[in-house]
Design a protein around this nucleic acid. Structure first.
Lengths: 118, 118
DNA sequence: CAGCTTGTACGATACATGGCGTACTACGGT
DNA sequence: ACCGTAGTACGCCATGTATCGTACAAGCTG
């Protein structure tokens, strides 16, 4: 077999990404928290699932990452024992210019307004 | 009683509008269709529920309008036998600058891409 | 190899959601 | 007073979602 190691994950292609799915994925506080964190890493920054301190069990966490991946919001690849997560900024901006940024700004505004310790 | 007629509807105040709820409200195709339509009416344009041709029964339609209202996306008032709907653009733009516009643009882009007869 | 760390898979559960139908209310016109 | 139009309320049902726990798999590292 070619060397593109096992443990590949399914990702929607750009053309398959649906706005409704993206909005739905981002409409959950926990998933928004994940995206907010990934966004702080800058272009192409990536982080393992464990980098984000979610207050749920691992299986629930896996579930939320999966929803984000299947909606086309993040891209996940295995790197050793970890699974790295990265925002699909380029793809999203290509399809929906400014959407991700605007939502992140809105989220930041709301955190500020509600006094959430970002 | 004062003349502020009966049949008033509950609307979240600006401070109560939550980003997650707004995104959730907009993550349904039917609700997005409603918002898309209201957006074509221009600032302060309003339309009765019946103006939008949804392919569901009246009760389901009522349900979707209610979700939009409770999320703070639209404002509804009774006018005679009709119930008029209006986008809360000002309020939303105040809280989340550019959000509504960007989502509408993204939706338009997707409709174009998928060849939806808008 | 043995054990630790990461994360998955699967089943259970509780609740939310979207859809329907039917019965009802409120208002305007005749 | 009556009818038609617009929309609500409520109950029902099927499906989806968020959560958990337990059992497991894949890689590092000693």
């Amino acid at each position: 077999m070619t060397s593109t190691s096992a443990r590949e994950l399914e990702h929607p292609q750009c053309g398959e990404i649906r706005l409704e799915a993206v909005l739905h994925a981002l409409s959950d506080p926990m998933r928004l928290q994940i995206v907010r964190y990934l966004a702080t890493l800058g272009r192409d920054g990536e982080a393992p699932c464990s980098a984000i301190d979610l207050v749920v069990t691992k299986s629930t966490s896996t579930h939320h990452f999966r929803v984000l991946r299947e909606a086309g919001v993040i891209c996940q690849i295995y790197r050793g024992t970890a699974k790295m997560n990265r925002l699909r900024r380029e793809d999203l901006d290509g399809l929906f210019p400014g959407l991700l940024g605007t939502i992140l700004d809105a989220d930041a505004a709301q955190c500020r307004r509600l006094g959430d310790g970002h």
